[in-house]
């Protein structure tokens, strides 16, 4: 067996520049997932029965179907319906919609940790529901659920490798292309694994810092 470091060092710049797409897709996916997740969580807890049921259906569907299937469906079925999105946009929207289901459940858990007295006080003060969510519930819930949200972001970085299947030039796809040129799968995929690992380690480190900064778990 000849493990060639030269192949790695020669192709490393391409992998690193492809990693930017991985990071972009996963972070935008997380953003979509958080914003949509807040909406779904609000729907899940609403007074209207049909809204609650719709949110529950959304969550069970997006958590119950493999993401790869969702991605493929997004790419093949949407054009059927006449919606043509650029591939990258479709990828992070699809990843975001899946992540929204998970984020909504994380948020629901965090909201339970906020004492109901705050809601009652807001009601008594006549604060409208939108402001209640935007200024009181969501900021606290995001802080309480921060470790889980960071976890979700790390999952998204790994999951973004699935976008390679639909032809987006992110890290995994570029690794496949380089393998096709060099016939060195072991070296290239090892290097790719290391890059993913570094991204995730950085996110975990940043998350811990942010937790300490916001004092999660110290109250």
């Amino acid at each position: 067996m000849d493990f060639s470091f030269q192949v790695i060092s020669h192709n490393f710049p391409y992998l690193v520049s492809a990693a930017r797409w991985t990071i972009l897709i996963s972070f935008l996916g997380m953003l979509v997932g958080l914003l949509l997740g807040i909406g779904i969580c609000a729907a899940r807890l609403s007074h209207h029965g049909w809204l609650r049921r719709a949110a529950a259906l959304y969550i069970s569907f997006f958590r119950g179907v493999p993401l790869l299937v969702q991605l493929l469906a997004f790419f093949y079925i949407l054009p059927y319906a006449g919606v043509n999105l650029p591939a990258t946009v479709a990828a992070f929207l699809s990843i975001g919609m899946c992540s929204a289901a998970y984020n909504a459940e994380i948020l629901r858990g965090s909201l339970q940790a906020i004492s109901p007295g705050q809601r009652e006080a807001a009601d008594a003060l006549g604060i409208p529901p939108l402001a209640l969510w935007r200024r009181i519930l969501v900021p606290q819930a995001l802080r309480i659920g921060l470790p889980s949200h960071i976890n979700e972001l790390i999952l998204l970085v790994k999951v973004s490798s699935l976008a390679s299947v639909v032809g987006i030039g992110e890290l995994t796809r570029v690794a496949q292309n380089i393998t096709g040129q060099t016939y060195r799968p072991l070296e290239i995929y090892m290097a790719t694994a290391v890059i993913y690992f570094v991204i995730n380690a950085l996110i975990a480190w940043g998350g811990r810092r942010l937790e300490r900064r916001l004092g999660v778990g110290q109250r």
């Binding site: 970085v157 790994k158 995994t172 690794a175 072991l186 995929y189 090892m190 694994a193 995730n200 380690a201």
Partner: peptide
């Protein structure tokens, strides 16, 4: 634990399936 949890399943599969023959 950290190495396996920090990398995507797809890359692990690629290492096993495509990279495996490199080490027999």
């Amino acid at each position: 634990i950290e190495a396996v949890r920090g990398t995507p399943f797809m890359i692990q599969l690629f290492i096993l399936y495509y990279g495996g023959p490199s080490f027999g």
